[in-house]
Simulated assay, not measured.
Amino acid sequence: MWPLLQSPFHVATVVLLFLVPNGKAFIRAIYNRNSTSQDFSALPALFGPPLPGKGLAGYLIEAMPANACHPIESPPAPRNSSTAFIALIRRYDCTFGAKVRHAQQAGYRAAIVHNVNSQALVDMTIGTEESQQQIEIPSVFTGEATSKLLRKICHSNEGARVILVPEYYHFAWEEVCRAISILVAVVTGILLIVKYTMGYHIWRKRRNPLREEQGKESSGSTFNRGVKYTECAICLETYEKGDMLKILSCSHAYHGKCIDLWLLTQTRNKTCPLCMQRVTVAAESPDLDIEGCIEEERDEGNQEDEEDGHNRERQ
């Protein structure tokens, strides 16, 4: 069963590896006291460190000057060590590397560079001369419409913040949740099938052990009336050693408790469950023990053999 359970997990892993996009990100704005969020498309820069796997959250502040081609003003003093600020910078007038480096020098934890008069996304690259100057903060590029919406949200909602998230994390999480749901359904179905299949075989083995043994020796247990009994026709349980039986006047036998209950349900005419004849419990056949009946039958058979032997000797 293990290879069968292993297969869905392998398939889901391969699918996720092919579906997860590379080199993309998105900006999530959270406002209205954390009750509302909105996502915007973005592209991470081709330089500097990548965005953290779980995203980078901070308060958005417009750079001064807006294009950040010169050193910009520092953000306000943080309330605590966990407070981060993200600079919103306008495109053009200088290189992307210079803009992000000025944001880093001013104390920002990340930078968002937006397009001008366009919503198109472009890859932010860095020149060979600037590559020697290490950039230690991540940055992303977005469109002008997005920058306007971000300004509006951050200016009109106190406490509003943005989160820069690598899209593969966002996408993978949704796909993982979907894959887990599918796998849970598949595994549950497999386990239910195995459970009921195994349970059925166990039930068959418990139900028919006597019948299997009887099949090897004879077709049934023969009692002193010459009638074969294998199971009670009322409860459908196979007779076992120690079971107490009652034989009706029609020669059909049942568990004593089963036939007693059957006869109690009939107020007038007492009938056999099998042949529906009017019957009574045979007076000469009280509660019978299967093993006792078999022994009794053997004793009677031995007595008959002895009598036949005596008769032959007399002749």
Rank of each mutant, 00 (worst) to 15 (best):
P78E: 07
I202R: 13
S249A: 07
F47C: 09
N208W: 14
R207F: 12
L17A: 09
R161G: 00
A282L: 09
V140Y: 03
Y168T: 12
A185I: 10
K54I: 05
T230G: 06
G23F: 07
S285E: 09
V165L: 00
E295K: 14
A185K: 07
P8A: 04
H252L: 05
V100F: 01
A103K: 11
G97T: 06
G159M: 07
I27T: 03
Y108H: 08
V113K: 05
M64D: 15
R79W: 09
V122K: 07
P44N: 03
T238W: 04
T36Y: 08
T197M: 07
F18Y: 11
L264D: 14
E284W: 03
Y169C: 02
C232D: 06
I294H: 04
L264Q: 14
F40I: 00
Y59S: 10
A110Y: 01
V14K: 13
G220W: 03
S131A: 15
F18V: 13
I89A: 10
G309H: 12
E291Q: 12
D243I: 00
G301D: 10
G107Y: 10
N80A: 10
E300I: 14
P138F: 03
A145Y: 10
T13G: 08
D308P: 00
G199R: 02
R204N: 11
E284K: 08
T222F: 12
L16E: 11
P44H: 01
G256V: 06
R314S: 11
D123M: 13
V187C: 05
I182L: 15
G242D: 02
E158F: 06
Y196Q: 14
E300H: 08
A253P: 00
V15R: 11
G256E: 14
Q104N: 04
L288W: 02
L248C: 02
S41E: 14
V14A: 15
I202A: 11
M1F: 08
S249K: 04
F223P: 00
L248F: 01
Y196A: 09
L183S: 13
R312F: 14
T230F: 09
I61A: 01
A68P: 04
R161C: 00
I89Q: 03
A63K: 02
K24W: 10
S251C: 09
I112M: 02
R101K: 14
A110I: 02
P52R: 02
E212Y: 07
C272V: 00
M1C: 04
Y168G: 07
S218T: 13
W262Y: 07
G189F: 13
E73D: 15
A25P: 04
D305C: 12
A87E: 01
A120P: 02
R298N: 11
Y169Q: 04
P50L: 03
K216W: 06
I137E: 05
G58C: 06
G159N: 09
H155V: 05
E174V: 06
R298Q: 12
A45N: 13
K195A: 13
L210W: 04
G301Q: 12
H310N: 11
R28G: 04
F26Q: 08
R314W: 10
G226K: 09
K205W: 15
Y169G: 03
G292L: 03
H70S: 15
S118T: 06
S118L: 05
T146D: 02
I86G: 07
C250A: 01
L264W: 05
